[in-house]
């Protein structure tokens, strides 16, 4: 990571208010400039969202999504009568529960590992090398990362590294992706492997920009490194930490590729998440209305994140 890059990333997403511009005449011109973008956004994002909300009240297929109006039936079934979406008995593995696990474990895992590397790499001479290694997973596709982790998790100790290690101490083999109690955690771990670098990059920039005088003052006052980190560094880095956390919650909710390629939701639906349920119901089961209801639930879960981001941006503009 070069210095220029880390400097820039020290203050992510703070727009400057656009300057006033006096021209009043020919007021249709700005619209001409913005038209291609606004047209595409309307056709591919705005209108589909409204249409999906409508479809979620219908029973139908991908070809004919509004075959029969069923009111809130799709929602009612998802929320009360679909053990793959919400499961009322143990073990609890089902889409909504797994998505909640993703939000909590993935986000805290990425934040924790990102912070660990950001702080420690700052103290060594091979900082750039260590960061480049950790950055690589974010450059490759989720599909390739899934192959990487299917190999790591392979249950044959002559193929999978973890099971070889377990075998070495007389344990296993464990089918990490074939056991309902392990699979979701195994995929979340792969997700953390992919995304840690983003947290690392943003947090490293924030950490490097902390004023040295404050940290020295804390050290002189007799607080040890651990105390200084929690009482001085973390509070001063709170802004970037929250930005990373929100970004990761959004990624956790949107996640789909890793689940599709690593387990396709299995075994027995135990790795389904809300985002994958949408794909499965629409395209595998050809239930467009039912899948759209799951999509709308996903959208509703996103609203707090949307609100937070807009607030960040507006605050930046003020």
């Amino acid at each position: 990571m070069t210095d220029a890059a880390t400097e820039e990333s020290a203050k992510p997403t703070t727009p400057v208010p656009a300057p006033e511009q006096p021209r009043r005449k020919r007021n249709w011109r700005p619209w001409l400039w913005a038209f291609p973008a606004l047209f595409l956004l309307s056709v591919f994002l705005l209108w589909p969202v409204l249409r999906t909300i409508q479809i979620s009240f219908y029973d139908g297929s991908v070809i004919n999504p509004t075959k029969e109006f069923v009111g809130v039936d799709n929602y009612e079934r998802l929320l009360t009568n679909d053990p793959f979406f919400i499961r009322r008995e143990l073990p609890p593995w089902s889409a909504l529960f797994n998505s909640a696990l993703w939000v909590v474990l993935f986000t805290s895992g990425v934040l924790g590992m990102g912070m660990l590397v950001a702080v420690l790499a700052d103290k060594v001479r091979y900082e750039k090398l260590a960061k480049a290694i950790i950055f690589l997973p974010l450059v490759i596709s989720f599909t390739a990362a899934s192959v990487v982790f299917r190999l790591v998790y392979a249950s044959d100790p002559d193929i999978g590294l973890i099971n070889a290690a377990l075998d070495g101490v007389g344990l296993g083999p464990v089918a990490f992706l074939g056991e309902a109690n392990f699979a979701n955690f195994a995929i979340i771990a792969a997700g953390i492997w992919v995304w840690t670098s983003l947290a690392m990059t943003i947090l490293a920039a924030a950490y490097k920009s902390l004023p040295g005088s404050v940290l020295e003052a804390a050290a002189i006052d007799g607080s040890n490194a651990w105390q200084t980190f929690w009482r001085v560094s973390v509070p001063m880095m709170l802004g970037p930490i929250i930005v990373v956390a929100i970004t990761m919650i959004i990624n956790a909710l949107k996640a789909i590729d890793l689940v599709l390629v690593m387990t396709a939701g299995g075994p027995r639906g135990s790795t389904r998440i809300v985002g994958y349920t949408v794909f499965l119901e629409i395209f595998n089961n050809n239930k467009a209305g039912y899948g759209s209801a799951a999509a709308v639930i996903l959208l509703i879960l996103m609203i707090p994140m949307m609100w937070f981001q807009l607030r960040q941006i507006r605050r930046g503009a003020d």
Binding site: A18, L38, I55, F279, V296
Partner: peptide
């Protein structure tokens, strides 16, 4: 750099679309 009615609101609307999960758009598109 241009002035037009609703500019800042439309920009915020565009930014809000960052969060939309693509899952929500598949069937209509």
């Amino acid at each position: 750099w241009m002035n037009f009615r609703g500019r800042d609101w439309i920009f915020l609307g565009v930014v809000a679309m960052l969060v939309i999960p693509l899952q929500v758009t598949w069937v209509p598109v």
